[in-house]
Amino acid sequence: MLAGVRPGLDVIAGGPHLDDAAAFLGAKAQKDRDAAQLALAKLLDSVAGEYDLVLLDCPPGNEPLQAAAVAAARYALVPLKTDMSSRKGVAAVAARMDSVVGLNPSLGLLGVVLVGTGAKSKQVHKVTRDHLTADFGTDEVLFPMSIRHAEATAQACRERGLLAHELERELSKGPKWWEVLRGEAKAGPAGPKSASSVAEDLHAVAMEVTRRIAVAESQEVNA
Protein backbone atom coordinates (compact mmCIF):
# COMPACT_ATOMS: atom_id res chain seq x y z
CA MET A 1 0.00 0.00 0.00
CA LEU A 2 1.13 3.54 -0.80
CA ALA A 3 0.02 5.59 2.20
CA GLY A 4 -0.54 9.34 1.99
CA VAL A 5 -0.26 9.63 -1.79
CA ARG A 6 -2.39 12.73 -1.37
CA PRO A 7 -3.88 14.17 1.84
CA GLY A 8 -6.42 11.61 3.01
CA LEU A 9 -5.65 9.23 0.13
CA ASP A 10 -3.99 5.81 0.26
CA VAL A 11 -3.53 3.72 -2.89
CA ILE A 12 -2.97 0.05 -3.61
CA ALA A 13 -1.53 -0.04 -7.12
CA GLY A 14 -2.24 -3.22 -9.06
CA GLY A 15 0.12 -2.87 -11.98
CA PRO A 16 1.46 -6.18 -13.35
CA HIS A 17 0.19 -7.99 -10.26
CA LEU A 18 -3.36 -7.73 -11.65
CA ASP A 19 -2.59 -10.52 -14.10
CA ASP A 20 -1.51 -12.76 -11.23
CA ALA A 21 -4.62 -11.82 -9.25
CA ALA A 22 -6.88 -12.62 -12.21
CA ALA A 23 -5.18 -15.98 -12.71
CA PHE A 24 -5.55 -16.77 -9.00
CA LEU A 25 -9.24 -15.86 -8.99
CA GLY A 26 -9.83 -17.85 -12.17
CA ALA A 27 -8.22 -20.94 -10.67
CA LYS A 28 -10.07 -20.47 -7.38
CA ALA A 29 -13.38 -20.15 -9.22
CA GLN A 30 -12.89 -23.63 -10.68
CA LYS A 31 -13.11 -25.04 -7.16
CA ASP A 32 -15.40 -22.57 -5.42
CA ARG A 33 -16.97 -19.83 -7.54
CA ASP A 34 -18.56 -17.99 -4.62
CA ALA A 35 -15.30 -17.93 -2.65
CA ALA A 36 -13.47 -16.51 -5.66
CA GLN A 37 -16.02 -13.75 -6.16
CA LEU A 38 -15.97 -12.85 -2.46
CA ALA A 39 -12.17 -12.92 -2.10
CA LEU A 40 -11.75 -9.17 -2.57
CA ALA A 41 -14.70 -8.36 -0.31
CA LYS A 42 -13.17 -10.39 2.53
CA LEU A 43 -9.80 -8.72 2.00
CA LEU A 44 -11.29 -5.21 2.08
CA ASP A 45 -13.51 -5.97 5.06
CA SER A 46 -10.54 -5.68 7.41
CA VAL A 47 -9.64 -2.12 6.30
CA ALA A 48 -12.83 -0.59 4.86
CA GLY A 49 -13.86 0.83 8.22
CA GLU A 50 -10.79 3.08 8.22
CA TYR A 51 -11.97 4.99 5.13
CA ASP A 52 -14.91 7.17 4.14
CA LEU A 53 -14.83 5.84 0.59
CA VAL A 54 -13.05 2.97 -1.15
CA LEU A 55 -12.73 3.16 -4.95
CA LEU A 56 -12.03 0.04 -7.02
CA ASP A 57 -10.71 0.68 -10.52
CA CYS A 58 -11.04 -2.40 -12.74
CA PRO A 59 -9.43 -2.96 -16.14
CA PRO A 60 -11.97 -3.59 -18.91
CA GLY A 61 -12.59 -7.11 -20.10
CA ASN A 62 -11.09 -8.87 -17.08
CA GLU A 63 -14.03 -10.98 -15.89
CA PRO A 64 -12.52 -12.48 -12.67
CA LEU A 65 -11.42 -9.07 -11.38
CA GLN A 66 -14.67 -7.35 -12.34
CA ALA A 67 -16.75 -10.08 -10.70
CA ALA A 68 -14.71 -9.80 -7.50
CA ALA A 69 -15.01 -6.00 -7.57
CA VAL A 70 -18.79 -5.87 -7.97
CA ALA A 71 -19.16 -8.57 -5.32
CA ALA A 72 -17.32 -6.24 -2.92
CA ALA A 73 -18.88 -2.95 -4.00
CA ARG A 74 -21.92 -1.02 -2.86
CA TYR A 75 -22.21 0.90 -6.13
CA ALA A 76 -20.92 0.42 -9.66
CA LEU A 77 -19.90 3.36 -11.86
CA VAL A 78 -19.39 2.43 -15.52
CA PRO A 79 -17.19 4.54 -17.83
CA LEU A 80 -18.44 4.40 -21.41
CA LYS A 81 -17.19 5.51 -24.80
CA THR A 82 -19.71 6.28 -27.51
CA ASP A 83 -18.82 3.47 -29.94
CA MET A 84 -20.98 0.38 -30.32
CA SER A 85 -18.48 -2.07 -28.81
CA SER A 86 -18.27 0.05 -25.65
CA ARG A 87 -22.06 0.11 -25.38
CA LYS A 88 -22.05 -3.67 -25.60
CA GLY A 89 -19.51 -3.65 -22.79
CA VAL A 90 -22.07 -2.00 -20.51
CA ALA A 91 -24.32 -5.02 -21.05
CA ALA A 92 -21.40 -7.28 -20.06
CA VAL A 93 -20.88 -5.31 -16.85
CA ALA A 94 -24.61 -5.56 -16.10
CA ALA A 95 -24.40 -9.32 -16.58
CA ARG A 96 -21.51 -9.52 -14.09
CA MET A 97 -23.52 -7.48 -11.61
CA ASP A 98 -26.42 -9.90 -12.02
CA SER A 99 -24.08 -12.85 -11.46
CA VAL A 100 -23.15 -11.66 -7.96
CA VAL A 101 -26.48 -10.26 -6.78
CA GLY A 102 -27.03 -13.37 -4.68
CA LEU A 103 -23.75 -12.74 -2.86
CA ASN A 104 -24.08 -8.95 -2.77
CA PRO A 105 -27.78 -8.00 -2.81
CA SER A 106 -27.05 -4.37 -1.86
CA LEU A 107 -25.09 -3.74 -5.08
CA GLY A 108 -26.54 -0.93 -7.18
CA LEU A 109 -25.69 0.86 -10.42
CA LEU A 110 -24.64 4.41 -9.58
CA GLY A 111 -24.59 5.38 -13.23
CA VAL A 112 -22.78 5.51 -16.54
CA VAL A 113 -20.41 8.33 -17.48
CA LEU A 114 -19.23 9.14 -20.99
CA VAL A 115 -15.45 9.34 -21.27
CA GLY A 116 -12.95 10.08 -24.04
CA THR A 117 -15.52 11.98 -26.06
CA GLY A 118 -15.73 15.33 -27.79
CA ALA A 119 -17.19 18.10 -25.66
CA LYS A 120 -19.21 19.37 -28.63
CA SER A 121 -20.34 15.96 -29.95
CA LYS A 122 -23.95 16.60 -28.98
CA GLN A 123 -25.51 14.37 -31.63
CA VAL A 124 -23.18 11.49 -30.78
CA HIS A 125 -24.07 11.89 -27.10
CA LYS A 126 -27.78 11.86 -27.96
CA VAL A 127 -27.45 8.60 -29.89
CA THR A 128 -25.63 7.03 -26.95
CA ARG A 129 -28.23 8.33 -24.51
CA ASP A 130 -31.02 6.91 -26.67
CA HIS A 131 -29.34 3.49 -26.71
CA LEU A 132 -28.90 3.50 -22.93
CA THR A 133 -32.49 4.58 -22.44
CA ALA A 134 -33.61 1.64 -24.57
CA ASP A 135 -31.39 -0.74 -22.59
CA PHE A 136 -32.25 0.50 -19.09
CA GLY A 137 -35.70 1.99 -19.60
CA THR A 138 -34.53 5.44 -18.44
CA ASP A 139 -31.92 8.03 -19.36
CA GLU A 140 -31.23 8.85 -15.70
CA VAL A 141 -28.56 6.17 -15.61
CA LEU A 142 -26.32 8.37 -17.79
CA PHE A 143 -24.47 11.18 -16.02
CA PRO A 144 -25.44 14.61 -17.42
CA MET A 145 -21.75 15.52 -17.79
CA SER A 146 -18.92 13.75 -19.61
CA ILE A 147 -15.12 13.62 -19.60
CA ARG A 148 -13.68 14.97 -22.83
CA HIS A 149 -10.93 13.39 -24.92
CA ALA A 150 -7.66 15.23 -24.26
CA GLU A 151 -4.68 13.04 -25.05
CA ALA A 152 -2.14 15.79 -24.35
CA THR A 153 -3.47 16.32 -20.83
CA ALA A 154 -3.59 12.59 -20.12
CA GLN A 155 0.02 12.21 -21.27
CA ALA A 156 1.21 15.22 -19.28
CA CYS A 157 -0.50 13.98 -16.11
CA ARG A 158 1.18 10.59 -16.40
CA GLU A 159 4.61 12.00 -17.20
CA ARG A 160 4.53 14.51 -14.34
CA GLY A 161 2.72 12.31 -11.83
CA LEU A 162 -0.04 14.88 -11.38
CA LEU A 163 -3.80 14.85 -11.31
CA ALA A 164 -5.58 17.04 -13.83
CA HIS A 165 -6.36 19.82 -11.36
CA GLU A 166 -2.78 19.71 -10.07
CA LEU A 167 -1.48 20.05 -13.61
CA GLU A 168 -3.82 22.99 -14.17
CA ARG A 169 -2.55 24.67 -11.01
CA GLU A 170 1.09 24.08 -11.95
CA LEU A 171 0.59 25.58 -15.39
CA SER A 172 -1.26 28.60 -14.01
CA LYS A 173 1.77 29.47 -11.87
CA GLY A 174 3.99 29.78 -14.92
CA PRO A 175 4.89 33.15 -16.46
CA LYS A 176 2.49 34.75 -18.90
CA TRP A 177 3.52 34.90 -22.56
CA TRP A 178 3.81 38.69 -22.50
CA GLU A 179 6.13 38.52 -19.48
CA VAL A 180 8.41 36.18 -21.42
CA LEU A 181 8.19 38.41 -24.52
CA ARG A 182 9.21 41.47 -22.49
CA GLY A 183 12.11 39.58 -20.94
CA GLU A 184 10.57 39.88 -17.50
CA ALA A 185 10.47 36.12 -16.99
CA LYS A 186 11.85 32.92 -18.43
CA ALA A 187 9.57 30.53 -20.22
CA GLY A 188 8.50 27.61 -18.04
CA PRO A 189 7.68 24.09 -19.14
CA ALA A 190 4.92 24.03 -21.73
CA GLY A 191 1.68 22.29 -20.93
CA PRO A 192 -1.58 21.38 -22.64
CA LYS A 193 -4.26 24.05 -22.79
CA SER A 194 -6.91 21.36 -22.22
CA ALA A 195 -5.80 20.70 -18.61
CA SER A 196 -8.27 23.22 -17.20
CA SER A 197 -11.22 21.77 -19.13
CA VAL A 198 -10.38 18.18 -18.17
CA ALA A 199 -10.02 19.22 -14.52
CA GLU A 200 -13.47 20.82 -14.68
CA ASP A 201 -14.95 17.67 -16.25
CA LEU A 202 -13.48 15.42 -13.57
CA HIS A 203 -14.61 17.74 -10.80
CA ALA A 204 -18.16 17.76 -12.17
CA VAL A 205 -18.22 13.96 -12.34
CA ALA A 206 -16.84 13.67 -8.79
CA MET A 207 -19.56 16.01 -7.52
CA GLU A 208 -22.24 13.98 -9.30
CA VAL A 209 -20.87 10.75 -7.81
CA THR A 210 -21.05 12.30 -4.34
CA ARG A 211 -24.57 13.60 -4.96
CA ARG A 212 -25.88 10.26 -6.20
CA ILE A 213 -24.38 8.37 -3.27
CA ALA A 214 -25.89 10.87 -0.82
CA VAL A 215 -29.32 10.54 -2.46
CA ALA A 216 -29.15 6.73 -2.47
CA GLU A 217 -28.11 6.57 1.18
CA SER A 218 -30.80 9.07 2.16
CA GLN A 219 -33.43 6.93 0.45
CA GLU A 220 -32.19 3.87 2.33
CA VAL A 221 -32.46 5.69 5.66
CA ASN A 222 -36.00 6.85 4.89
CA ALA A 223 -37.16 3.50 3.53
Rank of each mutant, 00 (worst) to 15 (best):
V215H: 09
R6E: 10
A164M: 03
G8R: 06
N222H: 12
L77C: 04
D83A: 08
A67D: 00
A69E: 01
K173N: 05
M207Q: 14
L163Q: 09
E159I: 08
A36H: 02
R160V: 10
A185F: 08
G15I: 06
L162C: 10
L2H: 11
Q37P: 01
V11Q: 03
V47N: 11
S121N: 14
L181N: 05
E50N: 13
V78Q: 03
S121C: 09
L107G: 02
A154S: 10
D98A: 01
P105Y: 03
K126L: 14
A71R: 03
R74K: 09
L167Q: 04
D139E: 14
D57W: 08
R74Q: 09
V112K: 01
P59L: 04
Y51D: 04
E217R: 13
L18N: 10
H125S: 14
D10R: 01
M84D: 15
G49S: 06
V221R: 15
L40P: 04
A36Y: 05
T117W: 03
C58P: 06
T82V: 15
P64K: 07
S172A: 15
G116E: 12
L163E: 11
D57K: 03
D98P: 01
Q37F: 00
E220V: 06
A69Y: 09
G161P: 03
G8K: 05
S196H: 13
R160L: 15
K186A: 15
D19I: 06
P175L: 05
L109I: 00
M207I: 03
K193V: 11
A92T: 03
L181A: 15
P105F: 01
E217H: 10
Q30Y: 10
V205T: 09
A156M: 12
R211E: 12
